[in-house]
Design a protein around this nucleic acid. Structure first.
Length: 589
RNA sequence: GCCCAAGUGGCUCAGUGGUAGAGCGACUUCUUGGUAAGAAGUAGGUCGAGGGUUCAAUUCCCUCCUUGGGCUCCA
């Protein structure tokens, strides 16, 4: 059943309760959301989560009254009169009138017809407040009026509501499950990355274990992209400021770029993106139509000074490394190239265990023609580019939706929208169609007819930024990585010291076979060592006791608890090598 | 950047206006155990940093740093 009307009603209950407790507060707005609802208001004194019990008690009183939610249409004069003391509501009224929409209000009325509260609202609502059988206030936050930091900071309270107590409990349980998978928690538990105050925020340090995952991903990107016709290059992570003035990035990105470094007569800057570097390489000599498409790829570190409040674990950092590439091609080749890019993305993400349609979908981000600052004026080119992207998505039967105003200033793009464990969607990386940069940098090629022509550029990533991809994968697998990514692939557990020599030999054999194997100290019980290895999500435990040693065999136990006793080591090595080489995701299932 | 919350030994957390506790981990010793925690002992903290109030601050106040949640899913 649709929870939005119920939650919207719960928001009105919250509003009314707050109005009772804090009569001078002014409501700005309060919508229902997918997870619950929130309520923005203007109030001079501090409200914190410590006030929740009091507020929830007041809400329960209103719910118990089972007030009906009654809709009514009013005219402008009535509206201005009712909400004359609330500038936020007056602003809404002006906006609604401007749009020629009807002014509707909802009243909370008891059975005798007594009106408790009136709010400007288009609904829909549950029939009465008594329908709310379970509710909970979640958190206090600050929120700018209309999301604009130039406006006043309002107080926001988040809450949720359900038809049944059981639903609420399930929801809470689900939230807790997502918390357990949080990559920041697992990053600590599994010893993958750390932060240092002295190094700086938003600058993660990868531990030896975290680095194994990172390097494996890098190896995969290099090998796979080369197979798909990319040429990997290495360009400097800093450049003269002029490069970004030429590209036009400088004015747009100035607030997220690191400040200019002045050295002698030069001005240098840490690069916030790689494209102009690849353009310089393209321009290093004349290009023939025969060379196109030119596909330059790079595992490229980039630097962006994100606002401190936006930083989060590995998903939002101040220096990141992108599996980046720029394809310079003829306009006629664009469609085919974009198709190949989408296929590459699907193919590589599938290997990582991310499924199209389930773990991610596409978003076609179109330009907003009215936004002259963010939109390079060239209607025909935009039209063409947007159509090409849309046609490819349709032809490839890719799951996608469209939004306007999310494009880059130099062209429309396809965003890869990853679904996180907590249900939130996040842009992981993008594929952009760019007809502006070739002009700015005078990129050319000599065509068949001997004339100079201009290519277009496709900016793309294959798996996104390594930091963010790692975060996704940590949460996706809850730390139980596929064998090829697992920092420790096999943990040897000799049952007692008597097997020390044998265990050493097994360890040596595994290492020589290229398997990341470790041995756990004997000074703990076998049970304890199995517990520790399982907690570390180590895929294979190799148990060695007297029986194994006597027959020169081994026994294994997987992190899922499956056991196989008395098998040949050579057989296991072959199995693991195959599982690693083929990047098998879940051999057990 | 702004709003709210948090910062106590490596980790998870308790606690108090009279200079701190637990469990896990580490170390040592005993134990050599057959598939998710064997036992005992020892060490380890200027309670995020700086300033203020006080006879006395980890506890109260201020500033800063770091971390977490949030900052247009419209009335």
């Amino acid at each position: 059943m649709d929870l939005h009307p119920l939650r919207h009603t719960a928001e009105h209950v919250l509003h009314f309760a707050m109005q009772n407790l804090y009569p001078t507060l002014l409501k700005a707005m309060g919508p229902a959301t997918d997870e619950g609802y929130y309520f923005d208001f203007d109030y001079d004194e501090k409200i914190s989560e410590a006030d929740f019990p009091k507020i929830e008690k007041e809400m329960q009183k209103i719910i118990n009254l089972d007030l009906q939610m009654v809709k009514a249409e009013i005219d402008e004069k009535q509206a201005r009169e009712i909400f004359k003391n609330n500038p936020y509501k007056i602003e809404w009224i002006d906006l609604i009138l401007k749009r020629n929409e009807p002014l509707t209000i909802y009243k909370m009325i008891d059975k005798k017809g007594k009106v408790y509260d009136i709010d400007l609202c288009s609904g829909p609502h549950a029939s009465s407040t008594g329908k709310i059988k379970a509710f909970k206030l979640l958190k206090v936050a600050g929120a700018y009026w209309h999301g604009d930091e130039k406006n006043k900071m309002l107080t926001r309270i988040y809450g949720t509501a359900f038809f049944m107590q059981e639903e609420l409990e399930n929801w809470i349980k689900k939230q807790e499950e997502a918390e357990k998978r949080d990559h920041r928690k697992l990053g600590k538990d599994l010893d993958l990355f750390v932060f240092s105050d002295l190094i700086g925020k938003g600058l993660p340090i990868l531990t030896p274990k975290g680095t194994i995952i990172r390097r494996e991903l890098e190896k995969y990107v290099l090998e796979e992209e080369m197979k798909w016709g990319y040429e990997h290059v290495i360009t400097p992570p800093l450049a003269k400021t002029d490069l970004y003035r030429t590209s036009g990035h400088y004015p747009y990105y100035q607030n997220t770029m690191y400040p200019v470094m002045k050295v002698d007569d030069e001005e240098l800057i840490l690069r916030p993106m790689t494209c102009p570097h690849h353009f310089m390489l393209y321009k290093s000599r004349p290009r023939s139509y025969k060379e196109l498409p030119v596909r330059f790829a790079e595992i490229a570190s980039q630097f962006r000074y994100e606002k401190s409040g936006e930083l989060s674990g590995l998903t939002r950092v101040r220096m990141f490394c992108l599996a980046d590439a720029h394809i310079m091609c003829a306009v006629s080749q664009a469609k085919e190239e974009i198709k190949n890019v989408l296929n590459l993305i699907d193919s590589m993400n599938k290997v990582l265990g991310l499924e199209k349609g389930k773990d991610y979908r596409y978003r076609l981000s179109l330009g907003d023609r009215t936004d002259e600052k963010k939109y390079y004026k060239d209607d025909a080119a935009w039209e063409k580019a947007e159509n090409v992207l849309r046609e490819v998505l349709v032809q490839e039967k890719a799951p996608f939706f469209e939004v306007s105003g999310e494009a880059a200033f130099y062209g429309p793009k396809i965003d890869v929208q990853m679904k996180k464990v907590n249900g939130q969607e996040e842009t992981a990386f993008t594929v952009q169609y760019d007809f502006v940069m070739p002009k700015r940098f005078s990129l050319t090629y000599i065509d068949k007819d001997g004339k100079e022509k201009q290519p277009i550029v496709i900016h793309r990533s294959s798996i996104g930024a390594f930091e963010r991809t790692m975060a996704f994968l940590i949460e996706h697998y809850a730390g139980a990585f596929p064998l090829w990514l697992a920092p420790v692939q096999a943990e040897i557990i000799p049952i007692s010291e008597k097997q020390a020599d044998y265990a050493e030999r097994v360890l040596k054999n595994l290492k020589e076979a290229g398997i990341r194997a470790e041995m756990m100290a004997e000074n703990e019980s076998m049970q304890k060592r199995i517990k520790l290895a399982t907690e570390q999500k180590i895929p294979y435990m190799i148990i060695l006791g007297g029986k194994e040693e006597a027959e020169k065999k081994i026994s294994i136990r997987t992190r899922n608890g499956n056991q196989e006793n008395m098998i040949n080591l050579a057989e296991l090595i072959n199995r693991l090598k195959r599982e690693i080489d083929e990047k098998i995701i879940e051999p057990d299932s």
